[in-house]
Design a protein around this nucleic acid. Sequence first.
DNA 1: TTTCGTGCAAAGGCTTTGCATAGAT
DNA 2: ATCTATGCAAAGCCTTTGCACGAAA
Lengths: 165, 165
Amino acid sequence: MSDSAPLEKVAVSLTPQERFEEFLQSRGQRNTEQRRFLVDRVFSNHEHFDVDSLIEQLPRKGQENYVSRPTVYRALKEFVDAGLLRCFQLEGRSVYEHDYGYPQHDHLYCTRCQKLIEFTSDEMMKIRDQVAVQHSFRVTSHRLIIQGVCQDCSRRRKKRKQDLI
Amino acid sequence: MSDSAPLEKVAVSLTPQERFEEFLQSRGQRNTEQRRFLVDRVFSNHEHFDVDSLIEQLPRKGQENYVSRPTVYRALKEFVDAGLLRCFQLEGRSVYEHDYGYPQHDHLYCTRCQKLIEFTSDEMMKIRDQVAVQHSFRVTSHRLIIQGVCQDCSRRRKKRKQDLI
DNA sequence: TTTCGTGCAAAGGCTTTGCATAGAT
DNA sequence: ATCTATGCAAAGCCTTTGCACGAAA
């Protein structure tokens, strides 16, 4: 059974930067300034993000280290291929999160404040695999998102109701 | 534990057509030919579908019962609101399935043949609710998709390998 | 010097919207 | 008669692509 503590990191021997370097070399691709810069930015905090929120935080056109939108898209795809990031769809857009250095996990999604809460559950994995066996299905991955309202939003709502009395 | 049998229907007192009629009346909306026609078509078979595959099966422009693309989109949204259909995202597009008259379930998705296989799991629901309690999260719904390769595709692959020997 | 990567502009895929007309109640 | 629904064309949103130039190996 999982507990409610924040997700623990997993020990990894290479930095994301080094790992991506290796990935690129293995495919005969080049490690450019843009790619290095984006790896840095993407791994500078553990929040989930979408392309727009990432680009908002990057230098604008004309500034130092500007990276164009197509290049951001291309880089993110490479990060996913390299195992640095995972990508999933939420409300129509792609959401990215750290994969490298973090364990397999699933999400609670608060439809009030859009927060994504990570959790791990071994039992979830067991059931997944049992279901697969029953259907003679060979599993490669899964995606579980539990939607609802988080604690903070429930509290806020309750507080507001009390204030009205 | 769920078994591997196909999904059983759930007893409902109204036909989809009747249920949608009620829904429209409750919202002061009108039951048009297009809506009735689409309800019929959508409930004529239990397969999952996306907008394009649905429209392909509908009459073309100029023919009897033609329904325009925007109207199809608008109707599908209403069917979801009315509880007739459920909608989820798969590989970037919206996929629809019957909700009214069918139990809550999840999916195995074969990445080889794009087949969606439905399954129910009470244990899955239990774990979902346990996780939610641990995080003081109020659940409204969830979406689980297990990706991998289905039995048929595994067999085909094996067969092909044998043939090569 | 060869190849790959980048930025630009433009296009693509799916979905939604504004608007005038047609239709339901 | 009133007000919603439809079809059309156009726009929106997110993402990808073709191409010429620039940069890495």
